[in-house]
């Protein structure tokens, strides 16, 4: 019984990091109404930025946040401003701009292959970092220290994004734009600037996720793909556009992945994840914590 509890706790820890990785995806969808297929690649780029920042500076991984997060914010902001915005403008009168989705797919391929070209296909592991392989022993429990840090980062980041959206003027403008872009522009809100901001913030949260991941996860050009699919399932499960839903969706996936292998072949865990995903789509298409916002 005890080891199941231990697995459950580790599942929650890992799941919260999944949720953190998915946070940007759900935020960007909520505001731009665009499925960002490049999200995994943004996470991958973030991981490279985090890896090199930590390796070259020798900083504690979490101190590197002060460098990685601003870099990723600026990267996301200008990616939207330069690459995606022109497509939005061209598709101004289309309710669901499909072309933009295709553009994000292009960004995914370009980023992945550019990384392959520059850094090669090899796996990189963060050497000599203070979190690497550390375990915390509490009685009978063995908990992974880097994942505990990751859990803290995930909860704090989710909370910060939530409060930012609820309490600040800019957050209010972001929510208004996500609910009705045209009405927001009649309030004097520049929707494209809001899109830039949302994309920047979404990418910055991927930066936080990357910092939590690099101490125990290898870095390689296609690492984003592994998280991509998981992130999509998490945000649909939690409710597209729901900030808290991303964290809880992530934890659900983490729990299934860690507990299911105790009772069946590990490959079944994946099947259960997808099965649950389908079930949620059938029963509650808006996701567990999503709000239907087309009235």
């Amino acid at each position: 019984m005890l080891y199941i509890l231990e697995d459950a706790i580790n599942g929650i820890l890992m799941g919260s990091i999944y949720g953190l990785a998915a946070l940007g995806l759900t935020l960007i969808f909520g505001v731009l109404k665009v499925i960002n297929f490049a999200h995994g690649s943004l996470l991958m780029v973030s991981m490279y930025v985090a890896y090199w920042t930590i390796t070259l500076s020798g900083l504690h991984p979490y101190v590197a946040l002060v460098i990685v997060v601003p870099i990723m914010f600026v990267f996301g902001y200008f990616l939207q401003d330069i690459v995606i915005k022109p497509i939005f403008k061209a598709e101004k009168n289309v309710r669901e701009p499909i072309t933009v989705i295709i553009v994000t797919t292009g960004v995914w391929y370009i980023l992945d292959n550019l990384t392959l070209l520059i850094f090669g296909p090899q796996y990189r592991t963060l050497q000599d970092n203070p979190l690497r392989g550390k375990m915390l022993e509490i009685g009978e429990f063995m908990l992974s220290v880097p994942k505990l840090w990751g859990f803290g980062a995930a909860v704090l980041t989710t909370l910060a994004v939530y409060l930012f959206l609820q309490k600040t003027d800019t957050g209010r403008a972001i929510r208004a734009t996500s609910l009705d872009r045209e009405a927001a522009s009649l309030m004097g809100i520049n929707a494209y600037k809001i899109y830039n901001l949302a994309f920047g913030i979404g990418t910055a949260t991927a930066g936080v996720a990357a910092v939590t991941l690099v101490p125990f996860n290898n870095v390689f050009p296609t690492v984003g793909v592994l998280f991509d699919i998981k992130c999509f399932i998490i945000v649909v499960l939690g409710g597209l556009g729901s900030i808290g839903g991303a964290l809880l969706g992530g934890i659900i996936i983490g729990l299934i992945e860690s507990i299911a292998p105790q009772f069946m072949a590990a490959t079944w865990a994946e099947a259960i994840v997808y099965g649950l995903f389908l079930l949620v789509l059938f029963v509650k298409p808006a996701g567990l914590f999503g709000v239907k916002n087309d009235w």
Binding site: R175, L179, E182, A183, L186, V291
Partner: peptide, 11 residues
Amino acid sequence: VPEGRRLFSLM
């Protein structure tokens, strides 16, 4: 003030 009110429904 647009036709159909166009409020931010979930705010």
